[in-house]
Amino acid sequence: MEDSKGHRADGPARNAESVSIRWACTLCGYHVDGEAPVACPECGAAREEFEVVPIPAG
């Protein structure tokens, strides 16, 4: 079921293109696209220290 904006009950509707997600380590600022790593390759911080950051539309 979708609302008037195309959002489904379990989240936004997905189109055929994959949605890119960027993660940033909150301790050192390291960025990675896709899935957050188990540990930061720069500072060794755990996955829990990563936050999703917006990717500018373009």
Rank of each mutant, 00 (worst) to 15 (best):
C25T: 07
D3S: 04
V53T: 11
S20A: 12
R22H: 15
I21H: 03
D33A: 14
A36W: 04
H31G: 13
W23P: 01
D3F: 01
D10I: 01
C43H: 09
G34N: 03
R8W: 07
G44C: 08
S18R: 12
D33I: 14
Y30D: 10
V53S: 01
E42V: 09
P56S: 08
A57M: 05
V32E: 07
P12T: 05
A36P: 12
H7Y: 14
E42P: 00
A57Y: 07
L27G: 11
V53A: 00
A46M: 11
G44F: 07
R8T: 06
R8E: 07
H31I: 10
E49Y: 07
V53C: 01
P54D: 02
A9F: 07
G29Q: 10
C25F: 00
W23K: 00
D33H: 14
G34V: 04
A39S: 15
P56F: 08
G34E: 03
S20G: 05
N15G: 10
I21Q: 10
C25S: 04
G58P: 12
R8I: 00
D3E: 00
K5H: 14
G58Y: 08
A13N: 09
E42T: 02
A24P: 00
A46G: 11
E35T: 15
A39I: 10
E17F: 15
D3Y: 03
